[in-house]
Lab assay of single mutants.
Amino acid sequence: KAKLLVLLYAFVATDADTICIGYHANNSTDTVDTILEKNVAVTHSVNLLEDSHNGKLCKLKGIAPLQLGKCNITGWLLGNPECDSLLPARSWSYIVETPNSENGACYPGDLIDYEELREQLSSVSSLERFEIFPKESSWPNHTFNGVTVSCSHRGKSSFYRNLLWLTKKGDSYPKLTNSYVNNKGKEVLVLWGVHHPSSSDEQQSLYSNGNAYVSVASSNYNRRFTPEIAARPKVRDQHGRMNYYWTLLEPGDTIIFEATGNLIAPWYAFALSRGFESGIITSNASMHECNTKCQTPQGAINSNLPFQNIHPVTIGECPKYVRSTKLRMVTGLRNIPSIQYRGLFGAIAGFIEGGWTGMIDGWYGYHHQNEQGSGYAADQKSTQNAINGITNKVNSVIEKMNTQFTAVGKEFNNLEKRMENLNKKVDDGFLDIWTYNAELLVLLENERTLDFHDLNVKNLYEKVKSQLKNNAKEIGNGCFEFYHKCDNECMESVRNGTYDYPKYSEESKLNR
């Protein structure tokens, strides 16, 4: 008799109507990190870190770059004969040098303040090359056809396309004075040089004057150069050297050249137009028929994500570079809930034993079982409120962090190594801060989002509990077992918050 009662009780308990509160689960393989956990499985997430590029040089917003090819900045601007293909260059979106560009200054020497000139050019998007001192009329008392084997072109001695090597005419090199007034309405880049012979005999042979000088002056520039005559090792078949100089001439300003020898005179100059998204990159990537809004030396990035880990040097509207390998923000729920887990921000989770793959029309909802059958029903209101809140948060985070910009490298010469090392340390410090901030932001927001979901499920549970009161009992896994019969209409009233407690209280009292 006792065995019969136990079996009867078990049958009745199993047959009781139930309603459970749960949440969506799926077959997603997404994982995120939080402050407290690593690799948390979630139903949905968004990636904030771009880690792919196309490996190509592309047009930037429809404008092609200027590819210097086998030449570098120095060779292009001075007019190395091997860089003749660059003479027609007028406009570009950015400038590309190759790491091993070999054609710079063909006659050995240095372009002074080269690093600063590169910085200036990094904001130039177009130029006009014009004859600042016409070759045939500007130097009537001097020979202007100086050439050298060091600047050979097609097997013949030649010289820079933008400079003139002035030497004596006959047996004399009379003092020369020439000036140019900038009437271009924009900055003009003027380049010139000073020749330093290897011996007094060479000085006399070329310029006749043993104590020659070169003077260059404008409103913002004033220097006097004296040739340094000295024996030097042979470089590119030359014992002599040429140093090259430049200045930016403001609109309306005048530049005056005065010399008694050794002047490498300007022939062509450049009127410059600035462009905020221009820059110089060093890259071996090849040019393709493609378009982008962000270019790196590795390749083009076409992404609206706020961060990238491809390269710190970028041109155009680019994500911020960070050292992170993963920045994924959760938008959905835990896919593998932890039992009795309390989140960092106070939300209680884990009283549900598992997510439901059968509930596909919402994030949170119900599963019921009664004599009429069983089924899932999503709670659309709480789901939609959660979707709206999380979507707004993700968009806000992306908008705040998605300050796209150009980031170019800084140039230092060989004598500025300590400054370069200090600059690298400062840049590394800023990069570490950006990386830390980005990672911390994602970790915190992921923790908040998961706790937010847990709290929403808990609130749904409490909503049902407050309606049923003692007409049902909690069975410990997020479910309630009714003390009365609850048909589909009754189940719907529980879900929509209109459950009639008094209607079922007498039946429940008897069954309790």
Rank of each mutant, 00 (worst) to 15 (best):
G62E: 08
H142V: 10
H53D: 04
S28D: 00
K38Q: 04
Q204W: 01
E128I: 07
L117N: 03
K38G: 15
I255F: 06
Y244H: 14
L8P: 05
D15Q: 09
S273K: 10
T43W: 09
F11W: 12
F276N: 11
N54C: 03
Y268M: 09
K1V: 11
T29D: 02
T74L: 14
F144W: 13
L48S: 07
E228W: 15
N103C: 09
F144D: 15
A230T: 15
Y107R: 05
P233Q: 09
V40L: 07
F11G: 15
D84S: 06
L163S: 08
I21S: 05
D51K: 07
A25N: 12
S215V: 12
L4N: 08
T18N: 14
T74N: 10
H142M: 05
N220E: 08
K61M: 04
E277C: 05
E102Y: 10
N262F: 11
S179A: 13
E119P: 00
V46A: 06
G79T: 04
S218L: 04
L166C: 08
L176I: 15
W267T: 09
R154P: 00
I256R: 01
L66D: 04
M242Q: 09
N54G: 10
T31W: 06
E116R: 02
R236D: 05
A259N: 09
H142E: 03
H142C: 01
N209L: 06
S138K: 08
T226R: 09
A217T: 11
T74C: 13
H24Y: 12
K234T: 10
K169R: 15
L57E: 10
V32S: 11
R129I: 08
L78N: 11
G109C: 11
T31Q: 06
Y221E: 05
L176E: 01
E82P: 00
I35F: 12
A259Q: 06
S150V: 07
V194F: 12
H44T: 02
D237A: 09
N47D: 13
P197N: 08
K135V: 13
S278Q: 10
D51Y: 05
R118E: 05
V6I: 14
A259R: 00
R161D: 04
P227R: 02
K56Y: 03
G185T: 14
S200Q: 14
V214S: 00
K184G: 08
N183I: 08
L4V: 05
S126Q: 15
Y221L: 10
G240Y: 07
G55H: 09
M242I: 13
G155E: 14
P88I: 14
E202W: 12
E50C: 08
S137M: 13
R118S: 05
W165T: 07
R241C: 03
G279T: 14
F276P: 13
G261T: 00
Y213R: 09
L60K: 04
V46Y: 15
S45K: 11
R232L: 01
K59N: 15
L176W: 03
N222K: 03
Y9I: 14
T31I: 01
P134F: 02
A25Y: 15
